[in-house]
């Protein structure tokens, strides 16, 4: 029974990891930016949800779209106004830039909201139900569902819509895309906005399932990095695969080797994948 419970815990955790990482994977895959700001968008999305709940009693599931849209626009304008200025510079330059912006974001959050941990505590927050003796917590099931929804939705968007195809076109051949009338500056901004919006949506539910504070952004960023590399960069379903693998490894690792090695085992898997299959479990196929 305990194994079954831990299996369920792992899968739910994996889905949530996918929700956290899918936007990070998009920006990395399309623009080759290691977006240090990703955790900050997640944190800000969480704070929007928290304040709406705390001040006006808005349910996190209702404020989720709001967090996502707010972060989309924030991301869109950050890319358009700032990151696009150095998009042709080296990989390291965009890394440094997003790192600098992350410092500004975190310091401002600390200034306005202090370092206190906050959490959205709805009536149903601690609620769970049982299926055949296995406990399934509601909020974590919702996070899992959100992970599937975001991953599936993004997959559909990239495959079917005109903007999605334009994003892929820019990724595959920038000059050809420009000749076809695609404006790369706008497409980059849209891509970055979508990524930030996905992070904001994830953050909304993270604020209900976890405690958020201005400094927790880094921890989610580190997870996103591992998930993307393990699952396969630039591959949307890779975030889901990476998330599930990480969830399983962390939880069963914690069971057999003790919870102390939980995070270390995640990084061990990262190294293992880099040695055996550097392109990640699902490879780089997604955008071609």
């Amino acid at each position: 029974m305990i194994y079954l419970q831990i299996l369920v815990n792992s899968v739910l955790l994996g889905g949530m990891y996918a929700a956290i990482a899918v936007g990070f994977s998009l920006v990395w895959g399309v623009m080759n930016i290691l977006n240090i700001l990703h955790g900050t968008f997640l944190m800000l999305g969480g704070y929007i949800t928290f304040w709406l709940f705390h001040l006006y009693g808005v349910d996190p599931f209702l404020s989720l779209p709001l967090s996502a849209v707010a972060m989309f626009f924030l991301g869109y304008f950050i890319q358009l106004g700032i990151i696009n200025q150095v998009i042709r510079a080296s990989f390291f330059m965009t890394l440094v830039l997003t790192f600098g912006l992350e410092l500004i974001g975190v310091k401002m959050a600390l200034f306005f909201w202090t370092g206190d941990y906050r959490s959205v505590q709805t009536e149903y927050a601690g609620y769970s139900f049982q299926v055949g003796g296995v406990v399934i917590p509601l909020v974590r099931l919702a996070l899992f569902g959100l992970g599937l929804l975001l991953t599936g939705g993004l997959f559909w968007f990239m495959a079917v819509t005109r903007t999605g195809r334009a994003i892929r076109a820019v990724r595959i051949d920038l000059e050809a895309a420009q000749l076809m009338g695609v404006n790369p500056a706008k497409i980059y901004a849209t891509t970055y906005g979508i990524s930030a919006g996905l992070a904001g949506a994830a953050g909304a539910l993270v604020s209900a399932g976890f405690a958020i504070s201005p400094v927790t952004d880094v921890e989610f960023l580190a997870k996103s990095f591992v998930i993307c590399v393990v699952g396969g960069l630039g591959n949307i379903t890779g975030a889901l695969a990476g998330g599930l693998v990480l969830g399983l490894v962390e939880n069963f690792g914690a069971l057999y080797f003790g919870p102390g090695l939980q995070n270390a085992l995640g990084y061990a898997v990262l190294l293992l994948v880099l040695f055996i299959r550097p392109s990640g479990l699902l490879g780089r196929a997604g955008y071609h």
Binding site: N9, P259, Q262
Partner: peptide, 17 residues
Amino acid sequence: YAEFPKDSKDMSTWLTV
């Protein structure tokens, strides 16, 4: 008896045990 790491984001395994 168990120890969890500093930036742990999931306590479900040891809680289940």
